[in-house]
Amino acid sequence: MNKLLLAAVLALFWGQCYALSDEEKGLQIMQEVDRRDTGFGDSSADVQMILRNRHGDESVRRLRMKTLEVIGDGDKTLSIFSSPRDVKGTAFLSFTHALEPDEQWLYLPALKRVKRISSSNKSGPFLGSEYAFEDLTSFEVPKYKYKYLRDEVFDGIDCHVIELYPQYEHSGYTREVVWVDKERYIVLKVDYYDRKDSLLKTQLFRNYQQYLGQYWRAGEMLMSNHQNGKSTLLISENYKFRNGFTDRDFDRNTLKRAR
């Protein structure tokens, strides 16, 4: 019985492969991106955020990011700020979900206060940077609808180019165009189009390194805003996987004492 079912599924699958629409092909590629990044368990990294305005003035934020993979749902993340010094100890806890609103708490060390905050803020800037909140949450397949556009060589690498249409509420984008490395199934570049469908930002992913023989992480991510001339560079260092994190490392008690 099971074998019959399997055969039927396989037949369907192969059948689709020959007459795959651009939507299905786009979805399949992004499912593969997601599949290859599944199973990392947990990770932590030290992140530097360098904000640059159009005159080249820089300001730096430092934070530590911890992530717990939640299979079948969005990841849990904890971000702990160490600079600028006036926000040292501020921490942000997020339980991300695909289409349901995320659950978010902010810890304010001066008041020793944990605040549950609204997660409707998707398009607003994160800490004055060119990253919006929605650019920093974990990638989940159901968050978007997809359309395969074309194949293209980017930076000497063969890529699939796919268009993503956000399906969650309050997004600042009509669409995102994503360049996916055909061999490694990792994202190399994203173009973001604003609500008026004009090009707003471009993000480049650089210095990829592979961890645990499978999972690729970019050492540098550069977000450039074409409309205001500002940019934000994210440098991630000291990536560590399989730290043994549990839900307990991502609760409101931990938020209050996170360093």
Binding site: S118, S120, N121, K122, S123, G124, P125, H170, G172, D194, R195
Partner: peptide
């Protein structure tokens, strides 16, 4: 009640 990213200016 918060209006986030008012008129796409980043203002809440």
């Amino acid at each position: 009640y918060t209006l986030f990213d008012l008129f796409e200016t980043g203002l809440d």
